[in-house]
Amino acid sequence: MTSEPEETDGRRQRGLDSRDRIVEAMLELMREGEVAPGAERVASRADVGLRTVFRHFRDMDNLYAEISRTIEGELADLVARPLASGDESGRLVELASRRAEAYERIFPFKHASTAHRHRSDFLARDHAQMVSNLRQALARDLPAACADPGRMEALDLVMSFEAWSRLRREQGLARDEALAVILAAAAALLRPAGT
């Protein structure tokens, strides 16, 4: 006979496995270009019942929050690694390159979340937090350039996810081409006025 604690632990583990499969299924569907995969599609991809999806995630904000945590975990090493360059132009290249890598990895989720942000408190807060974090990193990593408020705003715009998205989607540039544009625009902002 199986003891009750072992049965409970088995159920708990199966529940955690189902939850992970649901999150991964949602991410896969988004990466494949589905902006708003329905619960039925997610359940089918995760190989779980529809009721299981709703049992683990009572609303979409809960699922978005779990996806966001998963993505943050995937990016943790990239975000935590200190910049190696000692001069501001070298730090700019490193910072832009890292953002390009991060933006490419979050691209599908950000586009899906943008489509739903107007009706999701979590997605609105998550986006605001990302913007704030990126601004803080910019001020920390390029302090001389960011001492001028106008230059700070221009750098924040040029190095934003929205600028990256426009270059990649609307303007159809390849990753390396988009990075070159970002670097050229940001480098121009770092040059002293009149040069």
Rank of each mutant, 00 (worst) to 15 (best):
T2H: 11
T2F: 08
S3T: 14
E4G: 06
E4R: 01
E4P: 04
E7N: 02
E7A: 15
T8H: 10
T8G: 13
T8A: 15
R11G: 06
R11V: 06
S18T: 00
R19E: 10
R19A: 12
D20P: 00
V23G: 09
V23Q: 09
V23L: 13
E24V: 07
A25K: 02
L27F: 05
E28S: 13
L29H: 00
M30G: 03
R31H: 06
R31G: 13
G33L: 04
E34T: 03
E34N: 01
E40Y: 01
A43I: 00
A43C: 12
S44G: 13
S44I: 03
R45K: 12
A46P: 04
D47F: 03
V48F: 02
L50H: 14
R51N: 08
T52M: 02
V53S: 10
F57H: 05
F57A: 10
R58H: 07
D59Y: 05
D59C: 14
D59H: 09
D59E: 10
D59Q: 08
M60C: 06
M60G: 03
E66W: 10
R69T: 13
T70R: 14
E74Y: 04
D77E: 14
V79N: 09
A80Q: 13
R81D: 14
R81A: 15
S85M: 14
G86M: 01
D87M: 07
E88Y: 00
S89H: 14
S89Q: 14
V93F: 07
L95E: 03
A96W: 00
A96H: 02
A96G: 11
S97L: 08
A100L: 08
E101C: 07
A102K: 06
A102P: 11
Y103M: 10
R105N: 10
I106F: 08
K110R: 15
S113Y: 00
H116N: 05
H118V: 12
H118R: 15
S120Q: 01
F122Q: 02
L123R: 01
L123N: 08
D126Q: 10
D126W: 07
H127P: 03
A128N: 08
A128C: 12
A128F: 05
Q129D: 13
Q129V: 03
Q129R: 13
M130T: 06
L134V: 09
Q136H: 12
A139G: 09
A139E: 15
A139Q: 11
P143D: 08
D148G: 01
G150T: 02
R151I: 13
M152E: 15
A154C: 13
A154Q: 14
D156Q: 08
V158Q: 05
F161H: 09
A163Q: 12
W164H: 07
W164L: 07
S165Q: 12
S165M: 04
R166D: 15
R166W: 13
R166I: 09
R168V: 13
R169E: 11
E170V: 01
Q171A: 14
G172R: 10
L173A: 01
A174L: 14
R175E: 13
R175T: 12
D176A: 10
A178N: 05
L179W: 03
V181G: 02
V181H: 03
A184K: 11
A187P: 02
A188M: 11
A188N: 10
A188V: 04
P192F: 09
P192D: 12
G194I: 07
G194H: 09
